[in-house]
């Protein structure tokens, strides 16, 4: 394998890690309450703004900034859940989706009103931009951290869902809400926890996004949110591993189409990505790792 291909694989891995992180939080919420939460990307935006405009501006060190951002993401998501999604739990699913669109439009426009749409240059404290040589390819310290943080988050999340009482309660709730309730599981608390975990991951993604690219704006959540939706669907909605896989595939596809195809096809990138996605779905109508939808009798 040439150094060029290796370099592009690394590029895809880093971009995919960020998509995966947003997609897993997105899928986490979906698996519990069957909600396509379009405001998820905007939670990442709020995470990014609090990281850079509040915590970093206050001169806090990275080891304080990261948990603080996680907490902000978790709190914002839990508050949104309490205010608008909880009262609608019995409503048709499409309502949740539309509500989340409403929340997203609301957050973005409040953001423009308060902060202006102008992108801001931001920087993480510390020397994270150092380049390292990796078999002829180049990676920065931040790239390594991003991939590691994503993998660690996925691992922790898997253990959490499989091993802890709360995680098991979540899985029970995701199987059947009313049965879980009958079993004495505090469903409301479990759902709040799911939103909080998803929100924390989104906040972390916002931090990484801002840190890697160095620019944030109130509309920055839209594209990652959309990509997360797409990634989660390719992977199979509701499957955490599927969402991560979908995120990595999407990031890899975007990088490779630009990197490998003759340049005159580069402007067709998004058409290729979505064409590929439709093909995947036609072959596997429930996504890569999704469970088949049961026919309701």
């Amino acid at each position: 394998m040439s150094a060029y291909v290796l370099q592009q694989l690394i590029n895809g891995l880093v971009l995919g890690s960020m998509y995966a992180l947003v997609a897993v939080g997105f899928s986490m919420i979906y698996s519990i309450v069957r909600l396509i939460n379009f405001a998820h990307g905007d939670v990442a935006m709020i995470g990014a703004f609090s990281t850079f405009l509040v915590f970093a501006a206050a001169g806090l060190p990275l080891w304080v900034i990261v948990p603080a951002t996680l907490a902000v993401g978790a709190a914002v998501a839990a508050i949104i859940e309490f205010l608008v999604f909880r009262p609608q739990r019995q409503a048709p699913q499409v309502n949740g989706f539309i509500t989340s669109l409403g929340v997203s439009i609301l957050i973005q426009n409040v953001g423009i009103l308060l902060l202006s749409a102008q992108p801001r240059s931001v920087r993480l404290p510390g020397l994270l931009r150092t380049n390292h040589d990796f078999f002829g390819a180049r990676v920065t310290t931040l790239d390594i951290l991003i991939v590691a943080a994503t993998l660690i988050s996925l691992l922790v999340l898997t253990l959490f869902v499989k091993r802890t009482r709360l995680g098991i309660a979540m899985r029970a709730t995701s199987e059947n809400v009313s049965a879980a309730q009958l079993m004495g599981i505090p469903v409301n608390r479990v759902i709040t926890a799911a939103f909080a975990v998803g929100g924390a991951l989104a906040g972390l993604a916002g931090l990484m996004w801002g840190g890697r690219y160095g620019q944030i704006d109130p509309l920055m959540g839209f594209v990652p949110g959309l990509k997360a939706f797409v990634a989660a669907v390719i992977g199979g909605v509701g499957s955490l591993a599927g969402a991560a896989l979908g995120g990595y595939l999407l990031g890899m596809a975007e990088i490779m189409i630009v990197g490998m195809l003759p340049s005159e096809y580069g402007s067709y990138r998004d058409a290729f990505v979505f064409g590929l996605l439709i093909l995947v779905l036609l072959v596997m109508p429930n996504g890569l790792l999704g469970k088949p939808a049961e026919e309701r009798a």
């Binding site: 396509i36 939706f229 797409v230 669907v233 390719i234 909605v237 402007s267 067709y268 990138r269 998004d270 058409a271 990505v273 979505f274 064409g275 996605l277 439709i278 779905l281 109508p285 429930n286 996504g287 939808a293």
Partner: peptide
């Protein structure tokens, strides 16, 4: 079905646009 169809039709928009 459902969300899978939503994403596929979203893809249709992007493809036509491109």
């Amino acid at each position: 079905r459902g969300h899978y169809l939503a994403v596929a039709t979203l893809g249709l928009i992007v493809i036509v646009q491109v």
